[in-house]
Structures are given as C-alpha cells and as structure tokens.
Simulated scan of single mutants.
Amino acid sequence: MGGSTSASPCSSYQPSPSTVPFQRPPSRFKDINKNHVRLDLNSMVSTLVSDLGSVDINLKKQRSGLLKKHRDSQYRLVELQLVVRFPCFTMTGTPPSLFTMPPRRRANSVRCGKATQVSGETHRVTEKNGNDSLDICRVLNGMWQTSGGWDRIDRDDAVEAMLRYADAGLSTFDMADHYGPAEDLYGIFINRVRQERPPEYLEKVRGLTKWVPPPVKMTSSFVRDSVNVSRKRMDVASLDMLQFHWWDYANTGYLDALKHLTDLKEGKIKTVALTNFDTERLQIILENEIPVVSNQVQHSIVDMRSQQKMAELCQLTGVKLITYGTVMGGLLSEKFLDTNLNIPFAGPPLNTPSLQKYKRMVDAWGGWSLFQALLQTLKGIATKHGVSIATRCR
C-alpha cells in the first residue's frame, strides 16, 4: 500500500443506534416520520484515502491536543496523507457504493464521467458468496431521503427520478422497510419499467431492501410475514436482496432470524445480506454456516473503521461490503469549503438528517477546522484532475 496507515485498533464495527420506531410504517406519501440516526464514533483513523495522488499537509498545530494514547502505544500522526492506492477495495459514488475485496492487486479502474456514460457491463459487479450471487451496479441509488427530514415526497416526481437514474445505467436501488414510502415507490417504479421498457431493461434493475425488526422472538411465521410485507410493497415475487439489521447483540435471536431468512431463499428472497453488523457477529454468523453475501456499513475518507478487522474477515470469507456515507451527505464538497459553521448563518444550513449526522462525525473526528484543511487539500487534488471534490477517478 502506498503510504502508511495510522489507525486505532478496531475489533468490531459498531452499529448505529437509531430513533426509528420498531413498528413498520404503513404505506404512505405524506407525514413521513423523521429519522435521526446517530453513530458513536469510537474508533477513527488518521490516513485519508484518495485515488488521485499523495499530498502531505502540515497540520501539527491544528492537531495539537487531538491525539491521545491508545492502549500501550502512542496514537501519533506525523502527517496526514492521501494514499495513492488501496488494494483491498474499490469505492465510488455519492449514494451507497460497493467495494469488493479481491486479492492484493489494484482493482480495475473506473473512469468518472457523465451519467449517460455509466451504463455498461464494466460498471456492474456481482455480489457472490458460495452459491448465492446477485449482479448489481457499482453505484447504488440510496433512498434514505424518502424516510423524512428532506421535505415532502411527491410520488410521481420520485418515480420519474428513479426512471431517469435507471435510464442512465444506475439501475440498483437501496431502501429499507422503515424508509417511509421507499418500498412503495419502488413498486410503482418497477411496474412502470415492466410497462414502458423492454424486457432486457428489466433484467438489469435491482431492488435491495433492509429488514429492521424489533428484538423479539424470531419465529418462522414472523420472519415470513415480514418478508411478505416488503414483497407486496415492492410488487415483486422475490426480493433481490434482503439486508438484515439487529438492535441488541445480547439477544442471539439474530441467528434464528437469519436461518429463517435463509429458508425463504427457495422463492421469496434471492440473496440474504446484513447491514451495520460488527466483525464479531459477522464471524459468528459465518461460523453458523449462514450464507450472507454482503454487509452494508459506513465508510468515507473520514471514517475508515471498516478497513480494519471487518475488511480482513470479508477478504478471507468472500463477503462483500456495501458502503454508505461516502461523501458524508454532501459535506465532502465545495459547498462547505472555506465555511465556518461555528458562526450562526455563516455557512450553508445543515438542514437534512444526513448533514446533521455527518457533522457530528466531523466533530468526533477532529473538528471543523481540521475538516477544512482536508477539504482544501482535496480541492487542490480535484482541481489538478479537473473534477469536483466529491468525484473519485482512477
């Protein structure tokens, strides 16, 4: 790997506690519940990844007082680096994005460009583990915005936007049972595709959803009924991917739930996956011979915890990682360059749940001043290559 990585040890990826209510919301397009997800950042890294070059920036004064001792070693950073390459994954995209775990070699390059250039087989990957596989786009369209906090969702406008994304080649959609009307919108969208697009077009469309049940007894009938609700809302005979989340690791019912989900692969689910599971529980799941194809976790240039033991386990077992928060809800952009959010009304408003969430991450990582130094460095690299800060090219 180009450059050195300084990171506090991360034995497990901590899931995000959430204020989302346990009960499944009904189908609706108005009065969407507001979800505010907060992540406890218990482990951060100090090496910043970019595919565009390597730059050293002097931040000794700004880092004063930020570095602490970790266990028996001094958690020390001589310099922040933008690493030339990272051989373990390929990461791209503003919405949730896939990075695979090949052997130690540089991944095939992906050229950034206009949306109309996205279509093509080189921009698709296969989620595969054992006998289970699913072909999806490298860049996923995340639908958290439909869950509330981003203003009212207009059904027709949302479906038209989904069609435009799919027409441009971005035909994989990531949603959840608690993302407001996301599954219902997908159901309307997929019917439009069936009626207005050729059969080969439909073959490229994928709908990935999540199931976030309450930590109750996971019986076969409860699991089956919950899956049927998503199937009905999405208007599909079989879910392309069901990503499972669990609230309380002290309750080992997650193993029962996953076993019941595996039983439903005969016709109601094509692939079973996880979301926000930590490394320890992922290993337990695999040791119980439960075939999961992926784990969706948070990853960005600021939060690279999943590159630690989680990435190592995934590389050994073939489980893929789907990442969200790649550009931190928009904070990693020119819009927030040279701004001071400590002064009221001095910068762009943090008026969405995602901006508020990732601003808390910045505060835990090192603060807004340090983040400004990062944005300035990224801007210099982006300008050199004729792209925006949020764009990653190879």
Rank of each mutant, 00 (worst) to 15 (best):
C10V: 12
Y13D: 01
Y13T: 11
T19E: 13
P21D: 07
Q23F: 13
F29K: 02
K30F: 11
N33S: 12
K34V: 15
L41M: 14
N42R: 13
V45A: 11
V49Q: 09
S50M: 09
D51W: 12
L59H: 06
K61F: 00
S64V: 05
L67K: 06
K69Y: 04
Y75F: 15
C88W: 10
G93N: 10
F99A: 09
E121M: 08
V125W: 00
E127D: 06
K128A: 15
G130K: 09
D132G: 00
D132M: 09
L140W: 12
N141D: 00
S147K: 01
D151K: 14
D154W: 01
R155A: 15
E160D: 13
D174S: 14
M175W: 01
D177T: 03
Y186I: 06
I188W: 12
R194I: 02
R194K: 15
P199R: 07
P199Y: 00
K204V: 01
K204F: 01
V212E: 06
F244I: 08
N251T: 06
N251L: 10
G253T: 04
L261H: 08
T262H: 13
E266F: 05
G267W: 05
K270N: 15
V272H: 04
D278T: 05
R281E: 12
R281I: 02
L282A: 05
L286W: 00
I301K: 07
Q308S: 14
Q308G: 01
A311C: 12
E312R: 13
L316Q: 15
I322H: 01
T326V: 10
L331Y: 08
S333Y: 07
I343F: 08
I343R: 10
I343W: 08
G347P: 05
Q356C: 07
Q356D: 13
M361H: 09
V362C: 04
Q376P: 00
S388V: 03
A390W: 10
